[in-house]
Design a binder for these strands. Structure first.
Lengths: 199, 199
DNA sequence: TCTGCTATTAAGACTTGGTCATAATACCTA
DNA sequence: TAGGTATTATGACCAAGTCTTAATAGCAGA
């Protein structure tokens, strides 16, 4: 039963190698594992791994989506609870892409962005602009930690809302901020078809 | 000279369409422009546009790089001048990926991130952490505008630095903030091989 | 030893989305 | 009518696969 062991071993390594370099072709893989192309194809078939071009295509789509959703996404973090004009909760799973490689410490602007997004989302208006923000970083956040931000509208006078946001990991406070968010009726010449959204 | 006009027109549109959807094939393009596949290929040849698969490949590579550099990059914006412990200037070219689609208004956290990055970069220490930040958004920024952030260390007492950042577009102030940045000697158990970097 | 099983390799036909070279045709204009 | 560009067609070829069918190798148990 030695060949079978060799095979399962190869299958495991195959997954690793392809994950490491999704652009690799069957020919290259065959060469790498010193087997025939057909064997590699059978292996891929068995593992349900698509061909090189398909992998590349998916990567391209996913990556472009990622850039759009992370960078342009309407809200940073998942809104798991929102009472418009009152309070809300947002969850952000941090990962290594948000952190410094060397320290694994999540960059501050992600934490800020989550809080800011949540503050803006609470304001019941077509367009909401952050005017000022006062924030405190209470302790560094490591990649992989789950940020739970809770926000509450402290006061409102006309179009001006004061929103308090507290971000925790478990029971520990890691960030606190106060945002002044303005509700705007008209786009003020900044857009033609705008509905909502600043910050 | 009508066909020539039609052609240059088609070439312009071709660039647009491909930019809009890089995954599109020659066959689809031919169908779209109501010309033969050969014409599309000649057009691409003339414009130096690579084939669909090549475009996809580049996109995948570039996008994966982009996610890393934009998200993980040590500094948001280009540091064009830094006097460690004193002052610095950073430039950030905004684009539509940083803005809301509907309004073309750049999301606040990018402006914050540039200012914060610059503030941290000025502090001459192995590791620098932002403690607090007080910021004001003075007017919305449209995608495409060039943000010039100037920062100056106002005061320093021990490891605590107060950094003032002003961001302008041309001569107009769009953002102002004050950051308290702490210089840290030891990683305080948050990392093993850390050198510099928080926020 | 023969049979059966898995693993591997091979061979062949077909697909997609092209490249490259060559030739034919269409259209317009001087 | 000749010359030019623009367009289309044709055919050979390629990379990197798919899918099917078949041959071979190596070992294990009856």
């Amino acid at each position: 039963m030695k060949p079978r062991l060799q095979k399962t071993d190869r299958l495991r390594r195959l997954v690793e190698v392809i994950e490491d370099d999704p652009f690799i072709t069957d020919r290259e893989l065959a060469c790498l594992f010193r087997v025939s192309i057909q064997t590699v194809r059978l292996d891929r078939l068995e593992l349900g791994i698509p061909e090189s071009r398909e992998r590349t295509r998916r990567l391209a789509k996913e990556a472009t989506n990622k850039v759009r959703s992370v960078e342009t996404g309407e809200v940073i973090g998942d809104l798991i609870h929102v009472k418009l004009g009152q309070e809300g909760i947002s969850v952000l799973e941090t990962d290594k892409d948000m952190a410094f490689r060397r320290t694994s410490i999540v960059r501050g602007h992600h934490i800020f962005a989550q809080a800011n997004s949540l503050a803006v989302a609470l304001v019941d208006a077509e367009i909401a602009l952050t005017g000022t923000a006062t924030v405190k970083y209470l302790r560094p956040v490591k990649a992989g930690e789950r940020l739970v931000a809770k926000a509450e509208i402290l006061s409102r006078s006309g179009r001006r809302h004061v929103v308090k946001v507290t971000t925790k990991i478990g029971h520990e406070d890691v960030f606190a901020g106060e945002f002044t968010v303005f509700a705007v009726e008209e786009p003020e010449g900044y857009s033609e078809d705008s509905r909502r959204g600043f910050n």
